[in-house]
């Protein structure tokens, strides 16, 4: 099947399984939102930050859902690009996306939101990028899919949608368009 990965590339991929179908995906995202409510309501000192580019559709969903539960409540929500902090820029050149943090993170509780947690290197870079913007009182990690047993750094999620086992030659793709689902597919080098 041929799928368009936006600006990244157009690639042929072999879809193996659906990890979460549309209904499960919505339920999982809503559960994550409710867990965030449990720990952070009324969100006074909390800010949510989606990691560019693929964490943002997930964080957009969560923020939209939280706003629908608490209409009128102001949520602090930003986007963070980590390109310049990556440790693999010598191997592959990444073109940056937008960083938009319209608030100070100083002494706030920050929830980083991403789609898939794999080696942990993205989150390491995200923490470096985040700390260059100030000193939050606490940083938490909210992940839709955790590819467990594949971490290369000591990083674990605080909120996890679904933990899966996968091979190094596979990839996880979170789709949040009309055909919303999470799929596992073959990605041989």
């Amino acid at each position: 099947m041929r799928m368009n990965f936006g600006y990244l590339c157009t690639t042929i991929m072999n879809e193996l399984t659906t990890i979460l179908d549309k209904d499960q995906l919505h339920l999982t995202l809503q559960r994550l939102s409710h867990q965030l409510i449990e720990n952070h309501h009324p969100f006074k000192d909390t800010c949510f930050i989606g990691i560019q580019p693929r964490g943002v559709p997930v964080s957009d969903y969560i923020i939209k859902y939280l706003s629908s539960l608490y209409p009128g409540m102001e949520l602090q929500y930003g986007k963070l690009d980590i390109t310049f902090y990556r440790d693999d820029i010598r191997r592959q050149l990444h073109v940056p996306s937008e960083t938009h943090l319209p608030f100070s993170i100083e002494n706030k509780k920050v929830v980083l939101i991403d789609d898939v947690l794999y080696t942990g290197r993205t989150i390491r870079a995200a923490m470096d990028a985040l700390l260059d913007n100030g000193r939050p009182s606490k940083v938490e990690l909210c992940i839709l899919v955790d590819r467990r047993y594949s971490r290369q750094l000591p990083i674990q999620p605080d909120y996890c949608g679904k933990a899966i086992d996968s091979f190094i030659t596979q990839k996880v793709k979170v789709l949040l368009d009309d055909d919303a689902r999470v799929v596992l597919y073959d990605y041989p080098d």
Partner: peptide, 15 residues
Amino acid sequence: QFKEVLQRPIKKVPS
């Protein structure tokens, strides 16, 4: 994107 970096409190990236 680098212009945004230059607005931050720490105007430096480790790239």
